[in-house]
Design a protein around this nucleic acid. Structure first.
Lengths: 353, 353
DNA sequence: CTGTTAGCGCGTTCAA
DNA sequence: TTGAACGCGCTAACAG
């Protein structure tokens, strides 16, 4: 790799033209004679011209807007982490005249989601980073974007047939498989397994949960064919009712001492255990929400699986920027690491340098 | 956080002075009257001035050199990963007129290390990132740097009483503790444990190994007090001899079916097992060398613990740059995450975005 | 079609 | 002690 730094002036001199002409062929913005073009191109082919990013940054006039459409969040929940990563990217890209806007919707609320989609269609954003919710509303909105040649990317959940620029997220099936494998290290003869689920059909979060569950069950069927499992359906928001459900469940199934929660709300089970001074032999959940982490540290939760939400947001914004601003090519699929967290390594964990 | 971008001119106008004066107080390079200083400071306190990095980059004349002193490496070994991270930082910082130089020594070779230290003392580098080897040679060299007010930082291994700018690496004790904890998930009654060690005294790598071992034993003494352990001393480079040692060991101790390797050469044990179609119930090692990863995938190795070597190199260079170029303050200690890798999540693992 | 030029924001002279 | 002015490399507008 050449370390010599050529400037446009150098090139102009070498090609016997002016800087303006060099700039024109570099960005092929027309009005250059064939002769000039060839002479400049010849020089460019010989040297390894690397434009000075600072000069570009200083001189750039065009402003870009990248819109991030994600669910409303509260502190310490999953989407908060995602937003932190986006915000980080925003700070980093601000000097490049890249603006990152947020557009929120209420997770699982159809009307709110449609509303946000509508806003996107009416906006003049240059790119969209989307955590999708309702498929039927997403598809037409994206079709609209495609017509306007506005690129978009998914995070967290993928809708495959949409020609998104890229998908950034975890392989849910694999992460379910891994969840089973590490949970079953704690297995001893006769134990039964509780699968904690919830019942929000038609929601991408639900689909993701299903994939995790499939992965989980696939490991069980490979290695623990005859182990008994129970589905325990919990509510998203009603902890009181959940406590009752759990009470009943554990009374009826004293041997169910291993458990997995396939959404990010393992704290629902964890707090129940804590309140009732109970414990399971092994309880695994997803995502490093503050409550989950607390329960991991205090022992009610045995494992957490992390999916780097912040990095998802960060990489998503950066990928779109690389595409629209720096004209780089983008990998169409970026799987996040599947992090295994336990009480002892959680304190060392971080997503960013 | 204010999004308004103020320039030096803005500040000058607001403070009723000229741009030059603002620049002088910003970089406190004297010759400013108390009055002017106060007026500028007042404005600075009110707004959130963020200098335009591009303009800085364009205008900067001074060149910086950061020297990285690390062991020679071959492809796919530990130090290769470290170097990749450094190289990444080098690329990123080049536009800032920051140059990253490498200075290699032969790991464990006193003369070679002394030689490198000598070169550092004679050089005119602006900062040193050091993977230390021999303590007695390191201390005087660093004393020399301190005199010249050249900052230095450690990666991988810390020498605590040297007033380094920062240490970046893993908590070895904790990572040993974690190794024991996850390995012992595989424990069943009557199993014994092989501790694979090597005998290079006086080497920091050895000290690190000892710390990991201490952490490991500490977990055992907490939870598995009566479990039998054996020390198995292997050679660094002589695989044939190791094979013999292992043959003898496993013949004499058929119940030793759990094992831990506390340096990065778990492949020595793994390949032995593979060649002899043997397997252990659980074998844990450190670092994602290619051979180690292969053996993790093929099953001879059960767990690998990662310590983000590339991130260490990257963060080390960036920290020094932040300090000498951007005058930021640096955290004196940066522990890396303790990553737990198994066959199933290794493919999703990466250190950088 | 092509060369020239005025900034972009900051660091660094150089005069005053 | 201060202000004014130049240049870093590039973009874009303008004059020819």
């Amino acid at each position: 790799m050449e370390d010599q730094n050529y400037t446009i002036k150098d090139i102009a001199r070498m090609a016997g033209v002016s800087a303006g002409t060099v700039d024109r062929v570099l960005h092929n913005r027309g009005d250059v004679s064939q002769k000039s073009k060839e002479r400049v191109q010849k020089v460019l082919d010989e040297i390894n011209y690397q434009p000075n990013v600072f000069a570009i940054g200083l001189a750039a006039k065009k402003k870009y807007t990248i819109t991030c459409m994600i669910p409303y969040y509260i502190e310490h929940d999953y989407w908060h982490s995602v937003a932190i990563g986006m915000e980080r990217a925003r700070q980093e890209l601000r000097p490049f005249n890249v603006n990152v806007d947020y557009l929120y919707y209420t997770h699982g609320d159809r009307e709110s989601y449609q509303n946000a989609c509508q806003k996107i269609e009416n906006s003049d954003t240059d790119a969209l980073l989307l955590a999708p919710n309702f498929r039927e509303d997403t598809l037409p909105m994206l079709a609209g974007l495609k017509e306007k040649e506005i690129p978009f990317a998914f995070i967290d959940f993928d809708i495959e047939e949409t020609e998104a620029l890229t998908y950034i997220g975890q392989d849910s099936y694999k992460s379910g498989y891994i969840a089973a494998k590490i949970l079953m290290r704690n297995y001893s003869e006769g134990q039964e397994i509780a699968l904690f689920l919830n019942n929000n059909k038609d929601n991408p979060a639900e689909i993701q949960m299903q994939r995790r569950l499939e992965g989980f069950m696939s490991y069980l069927s490979e290695e623990y064919k005859d182990t008994v499992t129970y589905d325990v359906v919990l509510n998203k928001n009603n902890q009181e009712q959940n406590d009752e459900i759990l009470d009943t469940f554990f009374q009826e199934h004293p041997k169910a001492t291993l458990g997995g929660v396939f959404n990010s709300r393992v704290y629902q089970v964890g707090y129940y255990l804590q309140k009732n001074s109970k414990s399971m032999e092994g309880l695994i959940g997803y995502d490093l929400l503050r409550d989950n982490v607390e329960l991991l540290k205090s022992g009610e939760v045995t494992y957490l699986i992390g999916q780097r939400p912040g990095l998802q947001g960060y990489c998503g914004v950066k990928a779109l920027c690389d595409y629209i601003v720096f004209k780089k090519s983008i990998e169409p699929l970026k799987y996040m690491p599947i992090d295994i967290l336990i009480k002892e390594n959680i304190d060392f964990y971080f997503e960013f340098e």
